[in-house]
C-alpha cells in the first residue's frame, strides 16, 4: 500500500470517526433524554453546534497558551487516532490501520494524557478560577484512572508479549473466546472499571461539573476554540472506545462492527453515569485506587508468573 493511499484512508477514517463521534454523542443524549421521559436533541445537533461555534464573530484572547489549549486537545485526539488500528483487515499494512506500529500502545497512553495537559495550559492561561479548579481535578482524576489502566495494559502486553495494539487485536481474532475479556478477565475488569473514569461520565464527571465549577477548563473558551474542543472531545470519546475495543473486546473486522462495539462500550459508561451522582475529587481518586488498582495489580501478578 502506498503512503498516499494510507494517508487517504487515514483522513477518511478521521472523518468517519469525527462524524461517528458526533452521532454517538447525540444518540446518547437522546437515550438519556428517553430515560428522563423526553425526546432530546435532534441527531444533527452536534454538527449545527459546531457550525455555529465556528461562525462566532468575536473572540477573546488570554494569550498564546489559551489558543494552544484546544489545539493540544485536538492533537491529542488525532494523535490517538493516527496510531490506532481501527479495523482489523488481516495485515498491518492494510487500510484503516493508520500508522499503527510496534509499541504504539505506549504512544497511545501518552496521547491520552496529551489533550488533558494541553487543556491545563489553555485553561491556566484563561485565568478563570473555575478553569483552574477543573483542570486540577481533571489531571488528578486522570492520574488516578491512568494508573490502573496502565497496569491493565501492561498485563495485556505481557499476556501477548507485544506493545502493538494491532498484534493484540490480531491475537484476539477467531472467536469470542479469544477476547481478552475472557482470556485475561482481571485486566478486562480493570479496564472496564477504569473506563468509567476515562469516559468522563457520572460519577466521574468532575472536570465539567456545572453546578460546582461552571464548565471546568472550558469556561473561558468560546467560538472556534470551543468547536475545536467539541470535535476533539468527540474524537477522543470514539478513540477511547476503540482503544478498549481493541484491547479487550477483540477489535473490529469492519466498520459496522466497530460502530456497534464502540457504541456498546460507550453505553456502559452512560449506563452507569445516568443513575449515579458525581463523586468529589478525593472520593473519585480513592475509588480508582481501591478496586481497579487492586485488579490491575492482580492482572499483572497473574500474568507475570
Amino acid at each position: 500500500m502506498t503512503i498516499y493511499a494510507k494517508l487517504g484512508y487515514t483522513l477518511l477514517g478521521l472523518l468517519i470517526v469525527l462524524n461517528w463521534g458526533f452521532l454517538m454523542g447525540a444518540t446518547f443524549r437522546k437515550i438519556g433524554a428517553r430515560v428522563a421521559g423526553r425526546y432530546g436533541i435532534p441527531f444533527y445537533q452536534p454538527w449545527l453546534n459546531l457550525l455555529k461555534n465556528i461562525s462566532t464573530r468575536t473572540t477573546i484572547t488570554h494569550g498564546v497558551m489559551y489558543y494552544i489549549g484546544p489545539v493540544f486537545r485536538l492533537t491529542g485526539g488525532i494523535g490517538l487516532f493516527l496510531f490506532m488500528p481501527m479495523v482489523f483487515t488481516g495485515t498491518v499494512d492494510g487500510p484503516w490501520t493508520n500508522f499503527s506500529f510496534e509499541g504504539d500502545l505506549i504512544l497511545i497512553l501518552y496521547f491520552q494524557v496529551f489533550g488533558m495537559l494541553g487543556m491545563a495550559l489553555g485553561a491556566g492561561q484563561g485565568g478563570h478560577p473555575y478553569s483552574a479548579m477543573g483542570i486540577a481535578r481533571g489531571l488528578a482524576q486522570h492520574a488516578a484512572v491512568e494508573l490502573p489502566l496502565t497496569l491493565a495494559f501492561i498485563s495485556i502486553a505481557i499476556q501477548f508479549d507485544t506493545f502493538s495494539v494491532y498484534k493484540i487485536v490480531a491475537a484476539q481474532q477467531g472467536g469470542i473466546e479469544n477476547w481478552v475479556l475472557f482470556t485475561n478477565p482481571f485486566a478486562a475488569a480493570t479496564i472496564i472499571l477504569a473506563m468509567l473514569g476515562a469516559m468522563g461520565h457520572s460519577p466521574f464527571n468532575l472536570v465539567k461539573a456545572p453546578n460546582e465549577i461552571l464548565i471546568g477548563p472550558a469556561t473561558e473558551f468560546e467560538g472556534t476554540y470551543l468547536g475545536f474542543m467539541q470535535s476533539a472531545g468527540s474524537i477522543l470519546h470514539v478513540m477511547e472506545a476503540v482503544l478498549f475495543m481493541n484491547l479487550v473486546f477483540g477489535g473490529a473486522s469492519n466498520w459496522i462492527e466497530l460502530i456497534v462495539k464502540t457504541f456498546l462500550i460507550y453505553f456502559w459508561s452512560v449506563f452507569v453515569g445516568m443513575v449515579f451522582p458525581r463523586f468529589k475529587i478525593e472520593q473519585s481518586v480513592t475509588w480508582f485506587f481501591k478496586v481497579p488498582l487492586l485488579l490491575g495489580f492482580l492482572a499483572i501478578i497473574i500474568y507475570s508468573f
Binding site: R34, V35, R38, V275
Partner: peptide, 9 residues
C-alpha cells in the same frame, strides 16, 4: 431507573 427508557416520552 433505566426501565423508563422503553416508555414513550
Amino acid at each position: 431507573a433505566w426501565s423508563k427508557v422503553v416508555k414513550e416520552p
